[in-house]
């Protein structure tokens, strides 16, 4: 029997298609890499990480990590990373809190509360985050009054010099003491939290809605008030659906923190952009950014997987 031509052989076809695709990809990648090599050598920038030790020469507006302009690029990027982690950490906590409240509120018996929650979600979801961020920063926080006329809220004082929590006092026309957030950080957090919380609210709402009506009724017939029902009966079951949704929202929040560059908060991306502009080391900086952000996503996913397992174990 004559051998089958390859285009008719069902066993060979799969391999051949893969070989063709693989070859095609290899060719494209090889071309790109060779171009890269040529262009980099011409610009005098061979791929290396040694430049990370050179002095950065630029200031960073605010850092948790001690840093001065004579420190290395590596330290500058680390400072940026710490700033990013600060925003993401606080942001996750606050947006979860707000999101859970808003999500639960959409099931309230009070129509005003329900309506408010729905309106909040529907309005915030449909306006781009960047627009909200620049709005908060330029139209709200930058227009705050000077320190001696600071806006007083319970536990908060808002002024041109920053947002002060927990008891700052006016000394010689300036606010001192307490915990100070720069305007940039405050605006970034406000915009990011309000935006993310709307999406988290939807996740929470979907999770609660997935719990069968019978659970509510059973709890009610046992004499539990609605709030207690929510806390003790419904939420634990809803969590099974909520946790995966939260995972993707948290990752979104981490990625969205990179918009800080638009309002002057020196997060990792902003510092990286300045570094690139000064050193011209595009490829290395880009790869560093990708590795860090992908790593951050992975950490969040691992954390949420752990939470999911916790939630699962509880009821088996």
């Amino acid at each position: 029997m004559t051998a089958l031509p390859w285009w008719r052989d069902s066993r060979k076809l799969g391999w051949l298609v893969q070989a063709a695709v693989g070859l095609g990809l290899l060719v494209v990648v090889a071309l790109l890499l060779s171009n890269l090599e040529q262009n980099l050598t011409r610009a005098g920038l061979r791929l290396t990480l040694g430049w990370l030790n050179q002095p950065a020469g630029f200031d960073i507006a605010e850092t948790l990590l001690p840093y001065k302009a004579s420190d290395s690029y590596g330290r500058a990027l680390a400072a940026g990373l710490v700033n990013t982690l600060r925003v993401v950490g606080i942001g996750l906590v606050l947006s979860t809190a707000l999101g859970v409240v808003a999500g639960a509120a959409s099931f309230s018996t009070n129509p005003l509360l329900r309506g408010l929650s729905r309106t909040y979600v529907e309005v915030v979801r449909n306006i781009p985050l960047l627009l909200q961020l620049v709005f908060w920063y330029f139209a709200v926080f930058l227009t705050l009054p000077p320190a001696n006329q600071a806006v007083q809220l319970p536990g908060l004082q808002l002024a041109k010099s920053g947002v002060y929590l927990l008891g700052a006092r006016l000394v010689n026309g300036e606010l001192v003491g307490g915990w100070r957030l720069s305007l940039e950080l405050a605006a970034l957090l406000t915009g990011l939290v309000i935006y993310s919380a709307a999406f988290i609210a939807e996740v929470v709402r979907g999770g609660i809605a997935s719990v069968p009506r019978g659970q509510w009724e059973a709890a009610e017939s046992l004499g539990l008030k609605p709030l207690a029902t929510l806390r003790l009966v419904v939420l634990p079951q809803a969590l099974r659906v909520i946790v995966p949704g939260l995972n993707s929202q948290y990752i979104s929040l981490a990625k969205n923190s990179s918009l800080a560059v638009a309002i002057g908060y020196p997060d990792l991306y902003a510092v990286a952009e300045t570094t690139l502009n000064q050193t011209g080391r595009g490829i290395e900086v880009f790869l560093l950014l990708m590795v860090v952000y992908l790593g951050l996503d992975l950490c969040i996913s691992l954390l949420m997987n752990g939470v999911e397992r916790l939630v699962h174990l509880k009821d088996r």
């Binding site: 089958l4 066993r11 060979k12």
Partner: peptide, 12 residues
């Protein structure tokens, strides 16, 4: 129907 069922796509 006289056609062998093997790896030949045309047969299949």
């Amino acid at each position: 129907d006289g056609m062998a069922l093997n790896n030949d796509l045309r047969n299949i």
